[in-house]
Design a protein around this nucleic acid. Sequence first.
DNA 1: AAAACGTGGGG
DNA 2: TCCCCAAGTTT
Length: 369
Amino acid sequence: MIEWSQNQIRAFRKTLLDWYDAHGRDLPWRHDHAPYHVWVSEIMLQQTQVNTVIPYYDRFMAQFPTVNALADAPEAQLMKAWEGLGYYSRARNLQKAAKQIVYERDGQWPQTAEGLRELAGIGPYTAGAIASIAFNEPVPAVDGNAFRVFARLLEIDLDIAKPQTRPVFEQIIGRIMSPSRPGDFNQAVMDLGASYMAAKNPDSAHSPVKEFDQAYLDGVEGQYPVKSKKPRPVKVAYYGLVIRHGDQFLMQKRPSDGLLANFWTFPLIAEDDVLALSETPELVTDEERLTLLEQLVKQDFGLTVHVVPIGGKPVKHTFTHRQWVISLLSADLPANTDLSFFPGEWLSIEALQKIALPKVQAKLFTRIR
DNA sequence: AAAACGTGGGG
DNA sequence: TCCCCAAGTTT
């Protein structure tokens, strides 16, 4: 790792900000510095690419133009607006924070990074981003771009996946960043990280700060940033039950915590749970699986069903830490079935289109309608 | 500290 | 197909 003199730091600031003034991106949330606009965009942009966020941001602002509108919005409407964007706790925390601002803080925003950390869903990065962009506080906003950009510029070989690395970068960037234009400096670093100093296919040779890019100058930019690898997603096999009654489907609501919390889902039965009913799971034939599945549905839900495989490949869906493989089965339900013990509801096609569905359920829905 | 938490894009 | 990455936070 190298260190810069005060002269180098001043030169870097000017080079970066001049480039940003001339070539910074025109994005919907950059039309002003209203804290509400900065905040919503920053939450949406967490682990999510700019091009994905833009249409969501525009629709969101049309629907919830103020923090008051967001605080008072029906949760179902909020989740429908977030549908498909992922990391849904972001949306719930967003409304929680809106309520904090409106009802606990009399509509007043915390104006410092430290104060912003009190709001739900705002961590060290987002607090720095809002404080610097909306309130002009000279604090760094260390996201994946900042990690990558400064790791390359200064050849910092700390593992950016480790929690203890963040404060080191915050300290280094805090000393380098422009004290007079902190918001522009932080956004310029992000624009740089999204273009010339991208993670894949960087174009360091044409970067406006290539003279400051030690890893590039040494021909070792591919070595930065240092980042330890995450484990691969665990495969989980499910049977998905499509139980139709006229134009309605039997659906279940997922638990209020964990993956896809509170979303409606076609009933999913883990293959492992089915095989666990057998003394010799490794010997179970495909036909026997279906019989065991029917047993399990009877046992767990009190439903007597006859299941039939639906043609086509299983539906695959990969999350950060799980890969679901769902074999679809249709099940007929005798007309006089007692559903009083089944933890679910019948939802019509029209109802399914109105409520928020996560992508995996939307995939199932398109397969069977 | 490490794992959970969604989805889409690109090599 | 597989892997990594993308304006991270919470527990």
